[in-house]
Amino acid sequence: MAGYFKKMYHSISTVLTGLGITIKYGINPKTEVTQQYPEVKREPPEGFRGKLFVDINICTGCTACARICPVDAITLKTVRDENKKLRPVLFDIDNARCIYCGLCVEACPVDNCLYFEKKYEFSAYSKEDLISHFGLGEVKPAESKTEDKKTEAGKEGKEAAQ
């Protein structure tokens, strides 16, 4: 019989303790931790692994990134321009395949060439739209024209990335 009441007391007291904790949260609006996402956007910290970006003008076309990528998200095609330098004419990163592991960024031998942007909102309506194209397109042998082309393509690439 004593056990019967003891059990009852134990149940009631622990239930009341629990209720005490929840009501503290229930009546205090300051405890809310939700961020209202589309209105309040959190700033990702330095080194956030968001969308990949390639500064195509300084890319040497060494293909280290494409080779290290474990999921083959990077498609690279290089040709030699008239200075015998390798130029990436095609540089596609499939954001749908990429797992944001960071191996390519670490593999890239050129500083600030391939890096993660802090961007994390890039949903699209079709899979194709998720591929960012950074490639230079055609590389013409003529020096001056190549220069023009490069900057243009670079711009395009940036736009595509946005």
Binding site: T22, Y25, G26, I27, P29, T31, E32, T34, Q36
Partner: peptide, 13 residues
């Protein structure tokens, strides 16, 4: 809303 309050969330808004 009550659930939200108790769970440190906001609830429907």
């Amino acid at each position: 809303k009550v659930a939200g309050d108790i769970q440190a969330r906001i609830g429907p808004n």
